[in-house]
């Protein structure tokens, strides 16, 4: 029993890190421009598909991972410029609707382009190690480590790079930042691209763990939304913590119930959060 719990904790951690990558992109985009990106799950799903295509062409998973991140970065930039820039200054409601429209297009584009049959990305690292009663694939551990590395890099970027400082400035006060000469529209576009790239990379990373099909987006976006609310909207660290926390809970719950029902655990957590602390579990109580 204890061993099962340990295995599930490791599984939860791996899933949590993938989810954290997606959710932190979502919360970054929300924090800087008050946009709830409904198409975020679709960017994740397309990242996985770009991964399969690049893998088929180049044969290298790591190239595919970079390819997915770069391609989805530019897709994100294009979406921001075409669909969101004209909406600047309008009701935030319209941005939800616009990104929802984009998600419809992207999801059905994937269905059209790649067909309804799920694709599989083989694990790039084949090794296993002995974990109690089963052979645990090294690849899962590597995924968690890579995701953590990306998040750490993001944190360093926000803390020290010029663009990172600009991003934080725009998050704090858009008008003041513009007055100081920061190119706010370009910062918006780049942030959207960055968030998209993180979703794309995350999709490609999780490709070997789950089948790749066009419904991947809706599943992840729902969980990412829950994470973002539980962690506190626009709160980067809160999102990462909430992602890991929720995934651990779901992993433990699936010891007793089916995975489909384990999702209910995170729903319940969301409801508790809404009741007890609507601003997020992992932030100090606002005065």
């Amino acid at each position: 029993m204890l061993e099962q719990v340990a295995v599930q904790l490791l599984n939860g951690l791996v899933n949590g890190m993938i989810l954290a990558l997606v959710a932190s992109g979502l919360t970054l985009i929300f924090g800087i421009m008050d946009v709830v990106n409904f198409a975020h799950g679709e960017l994740y799903m397309l990242g996985a598909y770009v991964g399969t295509t690049t893998l088929a062409v180049t044969g290298s998973f790591w190239l595919a991972l970079v390819g997915a991140a770069v391609a989805i970065f530019w897709l994100g930039v294009a979406v921001q410029i075409v669909a969101l820039r004209p909406l600047l200054g309008r009701d935030p409601l319209t941005t939800i609707l616009a990104t929802f429209g984009v998600s419809l297009v992207l999801q059905n584009y994937a269905l059209w382009q790649y067909g309804p049959v799920a694709r599989r990305i083989p694990e790039p690292v084949a090794g296993h190690f002995r974990l109690f009663y089963l052979d645990y694939p090294w690849y899962r551990v590597i995924v968690a480590a890579l995701a953590a590395a990306v998040l750490a890099a993001l944190w360093l970027f926000l803390a020290h790079a010029t663009w990172g400082v600009w991003i934080r400035a725009v998050t704090q006060d858009r008008v003041m930042a513009a007055a100081m000469g920061i190119p706010v529209p370009r910062v918006h576009t780049v942030v959207f691209g960055l968030g998209a790239a993180m979703a794309g990379a995350s999709g490609c990373l999780s490709g070997p763990l789950v089948g790749v099909d066009q419904t991947l987006g809706l599943g992840i976006i729902l969980r990412a939304f829950i994470v973002v609310v539980v962690g506190g909207m626009g709160n980067l660290l809160g999102s990462v913590l909430a992602a890991v926390f929720i995934s651990l809970l779901e992993a433990l719950a699936s010891l007793w119930v089916s995975p489909a029902q384990a999702v209910i655990v995170s729903f319940v957590l969301l409801i508790v959060t809404l009741l007890a602390r609507p601003t997020g579990l992992f932030v100090p109580t606002p005065k």
Partner: peptide
């Protein structure tokens, strides 16, 4: 009761999550 505890954007998310809860319940 639950969804109106939060402002506009969160409202959309909460209603979405609730509809999925009912979907899971009905489906299983």
């Amino acid at each position: 009761y639950f969804s109106t505890r939060l402002r506009d954007i969160y409202f959309a998310i909460t209603t979405l999550v609730f509809s999925q809860i009912f979907y899971v319940v009905i489906f299983t």
